[in-house]
Nucleic acid binder design. Structure first.
Length: 294
DNA sequence: CAAGGCTCCTGATAGC
DNA sequence: TGCTATCAGGAGCCTT
C-alpha cells in the first residue's frame, strides 16, 4: 500500500525512464482509471497524446508528469494497489492493466525497437487513477493545492504543524492521516510513528506540547527515510515499484500487522482495534490510552 | 466551517 | 468442497 516512500520511489523511476519522452498514444482499458474527467476517457487520451513529458513531481502520495508547453500535467494516485510500470513493449499484459501509455521515442537514438518500453498503469482495486489538470504557476496540478507539504519537504513548517494540532479538536492519528495538515502518511506509517513515539492513536491533538510534536515528527521522518532507503514497503505483493521490484521494508515494521505479537520494547502483546473502517495496531503498555478515550 | 462517516473496488482468507 | 462474510484502505464527498 503505497505511502510517501513508495510513491517517491515510483517518481524516481519515472524520472529515470519516462521523463523527456513523448506520448504517442494512450489506451484506456478501464474507464474508472481515468478520474475527474467529465469528457470521458477517450477525451483524456486525445488530450495527453502528442505531448512531451517533463520531470515528474510529487506532493504527498500524489505524483504527476507535466505535459511540456501545455500548462497541464497528468496527475496520478496509486490508491491502494496501483502500480506504474515501465515495461518492454510487447511484454505480457497484466491482469489488471488499466491504462497503457505508448511512448514515441526510445531512451537513446541508438536503442533498437527491442529495447522500447511503455508506461503502464496497473491497479487491481481501482482506487487509484490518472487525471489531467491545469498547473499553477509553481507547477502543481490545481486540484491538489489543498495537499500539505510532506515532512521530508525542506519547506515543511514544523511550528505551523504544531499550531494546527493545538487548534484541532480531533485525535492524533486522524491528524496524521489528514493530507491537508501533513501529507504522505498512511495507516501503516502512522501506526509505526506512533509506536516509536509511545503515543496512543486516540490522543487529542490539542494536548500535544511542542517537544511532543517534535518527537512525533522525528519518528515520522525516521520511518519514511528507512522505507525510502530500502525502496518502499511491500507485504501483500500488490505494490511493486516502477520497475516491478518489490520492497522489503515490511520485515522492519514494529506495530502494523503485529496483533498478538510481543512489543519489541516491552514484550506486551500488541493489540489491533477497529478504527475508521480500518485497523490501528498499538502496544497497550507503551502507548497508554488517554483518559477520555475508550 | 470543522469533524467524522460513508463509499468506491477486487481478491485473499476465514468460517461454516 | 463450496459458499458467504470479512477485511484491506486513500481520499472525495456527504452529513451533522
Amino acid at each position: 500500500m503505497p505511502e510517501l516512500p513508495e510513491v517517491e520511489i515510483v517518481r524516481r523511476g519515472l524520472e529515470r525512464w519516462v521523463a523527456h519522452r513523448s506520448v504517442a498514444d494512450v489506451e484506456v482499458l478501464h474507464p474508472r482509471a481515468v478520474r475527474r474527467h467529465l469528457a470521458g476517457a477517450e477525451d483524456f487520451a486525445l488530450r495527453v497524446q502528442g505531448h512531451r513529458l517533463g520531470l515528474p513531481g510529487r506532493r504527498g502520495k500524489y505524483l504527476w508528469l507535466p505535459l511540456e508547453d501545455s500548462g497541464q500535467a497528468v496527475l496520478a494516485h496509486l490508491g491502494m494497489s496501483g502500480q506504474l510500470l515501465v515495461q518492454p513493449v510487447g511484454a505480457p499484459t497484466e491482469k489488471h492493466l488499466r491504462i497503457r501509455v505508448r511512448l514515441a521515442d526510445t531512451l537513446t537514438p541508438a536503442a533498437s525497437a527491442a529495447d522500447a518500453t511503455e508506461l503502464r498503469f496497473v491497479d487491481q482495486r481501482t482506487f487509484g487513477g490518472l487525471s489531467l489538470h491545469d498547473t499553477t504557476p509553481d507547477g502543481l496540478p490545481d486540484v491538489i493545492a489543498h495537499i500539505a507539504r510532506d515532512p521530508l519537504d525542506p519547506l515543511f513548517d514544523d511550528e505551523a504543524f504544531h499550531q494546527a494540532l493545538r487548534r484541532k479538536r480531533t485525535t492524533i492519528k486522524r491528524a496524521l492521516l489528514d493530507q491537508s495538515l501533513i501529507s504522505g502518511v498512511g495507516n501503516i506509517y502512522a501506526d509505526e510513528a506512533l509506536w516509536r513515539s509511545r503515543v496512543h492513536y486516540e490522543r487529542p491533538t490539542a494536548t500535544f506540547t511542542r517537544p511532543g510534536t517534535a518527537e512525533l515528527l522525528t519518528h515520522v521522518r525516521e520511518v519514511m527515510n528507512e522505507a525510502l532507503a530500502v525502496g518502499g514497503t511491500s507485504f501483500d505483493s500488490l505494490y511493486v515499484n516502477v520497475n516491478g521490484e518489490s520492497g522489503y521494508f515490511d520485515r522492519s515494521l514494529d506495530a502494523y500487522g503485529r496483533e498478538g505479537l510481543p512489543c519489541r520494547r516491552c514484550a506486551t502483546p500488541l493489540r489491533r482495534r477497529p478504527w475508521m473502517n480500518r485497523s490501528s495496531y498499538y502496544c497497550p503498555k507503551c502507548q497508554r490510552a488517554p483518559r477520555a478515550a475508550s
